[in-house]
């Protein structure tokens, strides 16, 4: 067996989800190669060569891959895929964007967001917002898989893979990049943070999110949000945790003014310890919380910030 893992990166540095995806590949077993498609992405290749378990780092460095356009990346990956038994990518918005195109081009199914490897052809994945776990088996010649990072530990970085550059660049000519507005933050990212404090509709407005930031500063935490808080404009979309936002599993998740809808729980219920702060003792979030505090958040959160 040989497995191709597609790295997640921003041309400057490797994203953590890549490490969890490599672990999934190692669990499947066999030779693991890593593809880095981007532009001026040498630094990423150097970083990736250190991931234990990776045999070769393949680099496709060209302007057509600069912005990870799905039409272009999927052509490259499906061309390379014929030499592999499995192709894996992190289930990030980027992986979700191009991988189904790879699968369709190869005329195979995709197995989305696996959380466990049962064997080389059998995997577990959550369905119905995580309210059921399906075990699925694939008989396809190439198994195209996206990997949910929270299901796998990060691979360690004490390896030394060889780096090979690929002389490939195909522009599908279907789409072009216009612009990007990326959140700038000194805080850890939601998907890699050990502690997350999230706010919901109960926060009332966007400036009240600074109350959460004060706690986050003390704990080195990331700040997240419910869909209701994002829809209301209290927080940007990249902060949404849930079935259709980010899936997180930190050591500590603090839900503030969040009721605990199925779709929100789907994104955080695998956290190690859950704390809920809500003034409504009937709120469903308390059914999954290890520690619940029934209180007005405008009293409790400042007090929490002061006592840390």
């Amino acid at each position: 067996m040989s497995i191709l893992v597609i790295a997640e990166h921003d041309n400057g540095s490797l994203k953590d989800e890549t490490l969890n995806t490599v672990t999934a590949a190692v669990q499947i077993g066999g030779n693991v190669d890593l593809l880095i498609a981007g532009e001026n992405c040498n630094a990423v290749a150097e970083q990736a060569a250190k991931i234990s378990g990776v045999n070769r780092v393949l680099v496709a460095d060209h302007a057509v891959y600069a912005h990870q356009l799905a039409e272009n990346i999927s052509l490259l990956v499906s061309e390379l895929a014929v030499d592999y038994s499995h192709v894996l990518a992190p289930a990030t918005t980027n992986g979700k964007n191009f991988m189904p195109r790879v699968a369709a081009t190869l005329d195979v199914s995709q197995i989305s967001e696996i959380t466990a490897v049962v064997s080389a052809d059998t995997f577990k994945r959550p369905i119905y917002a995580g309210n059921a776990i399906a075990t699925v088996q694939s008989t396809d010649k190439v198994k195209v898989i996206t990997v949910r990072a929270t299901g796998f530990d990060a691979a360690v970085c004490d390896g030394s893979a060889t780096i090979e550059s690929l002389d490939k660049a195909t522009d599908a000519g279907l789409s072009s990049f216009v612009k990007e507005e990326l959140a700038q933050s000194d805080r850890p990212g939601l998907t890699s943070a050990k502690v997350i404090i999230s706010g919901g509709r109960g926060m009332g407005n966007s400036s009240n999110f600074s109350l959460l930031e004060q706690v986050a500063d003390k704990l080195g935490a990331a700040v997240g949000a419910s869909r209701a808080a994002v829809d209301a404009g209290y927080a940007p979309n990249d902060m949404q945790v849930g079935q259709t936002g980010k899936i997180v599993a930190p050591d500590l998740y603090i839900a503030v003014g969040i009721s605990g809808a199925i779709q929100h729980l789907a994104g955080m219920k695998d956290s190690k310890v859950i704390v809920a702060i809500n003034k409504d003792e009937e709120a469903p979030i308390f059914q999954v919380a290890d520690f619940g505090l029934v209180d007005d958040l405008f009293d409790a959160v400042p007090e929490l910030a002061n006592s840390l």
Partner: peptide, 16 residues
């Protein structure tokens, strides 16, 4: 090419 072998309930969290 995909077959669902089994569908299970997830591990439930108990309220704390």
């Amino acid at each position: 090419g995909l077959k669902t072998l089994l569908v299970e309930s997830p591990q439930e969290r108990s309220a704390g």
